[in-house]
Design a protein around this nucleic acid. Structure first.
Lengths: 160, 160
DNA sequence: TGAAACGTTCACGTCCACGTTAAATTCGGG
DNA sequence: CCCGAATTTAACGTGGACGTGAACGTTTCA
């Protein structure tokens, strides 16, 4: 049934299990991500098996990064991915009022700015934590040195 | 009842509601943090009201930073706070074998190192996300410029 | 002194992001 | 054609981190 409408030399399609293995997540997670609108199989078999192309792996890994490092909720992740998808669709469909298209791009840029600010704030907090850790280590090293001299002192005086 | 055993001029004690307000969390959260071993009132009234000293505010804010930026679980937060408390207690109680005390300090330093590594990894991930954002913005700006020229072009040719 | 404001201890409810069966269906190799 | 592995939907369970009453005791202050 001509399963290749122009996407190169018949791009290999993956079933959910292989996607899961490649991404290091469970199939349940992938189905959950689909249910919450983060993911979409490119097609499915006659019998209903989900079929993905390889690009899904990158997408999932982006999701995981946003989940694990930025700690976005899945809803937030969905919003950012949706925005990306919309602009990509915009690039790919020529036509329409250029002015309107610029508007869309501007909104996208604004969204990116907000996200950047959010991430920068998170990073600042992490830096604060790092400073705290450094200071604690510094203090501990001082104490360690003190204890070391105390140890030497006690040893040289044997038992007074 | 001599409620001031040497802590300056009768340090002011706070009840849970004021602590909650100062920290921007609910009283339920504070009780929960107590229940999971992150927090401890310094004393309580005859009738059972929890009493905290002002230092609790800093402690809670440290907890919130670890919760919101590093995304430690409360259990992990408890562990790190416990470690801090143990070494602080160690500073305050003189005596004991200096060698043993050095051991404790060394373990503490090792724990700090592990934490630092973890946080650094998180920060690296954040930086990756920031790079992604920058690249997306860069691409969008290019498109925007293209659209702008397109707009000017279309305007100069009126309606062809 | 008495009522508003605050606090106490249960105990159950909730939201997120899945985990875990269960029962039925589909795919693919021999 | 058949069998076993992979997948499907549907539904219930879970764990963390609290929210939300209910029923009751405590402080405070006019």
């Amino acid at each position: 049934m001509a399963p290749d409408p122009g996407t190169g030399p018949t791009a290999r399609l993956l079933r959910i299990g292989e996607v899961a293995r490649r991404c290091g997540v469970s199939t349940r997670t992938l189905r959950w991500y689909e249910e919450t609108g983060l993911l979409q199989p490119v097609s499915s078999t006659e019998g209903g098996f989900r079929l993905y192309d390889e690009s899904v792996v990158d997408r999932v890994q982006r999701i995981l990064r946003l989940r694990d490092s930025v700690h976005f909720t899945l809803e937030e992740i969905r919003d950012t991915l949706d925005a990306d998808d919309r602009v990509r669709a915009l690039w790919n469909t020529a036509g329409g009022d250029p002015a309107e298209r610029i508007d869309v791009v501007d909104q996208y840029l604004a969204a990116l700015d907000r996200q950047q600010e959010l991430v920068l704030a998170k990073r600042a907090q992490l830096d604060a934590v790092l400073d705290e850790l450094d200071e604690k280590a510094r203090r501990a090293e001082v104490r360690r040195a003190e204890l070391l001299t105390e140890l030497v002192h006690g040893a040289s005086e044997a038992s007074v």
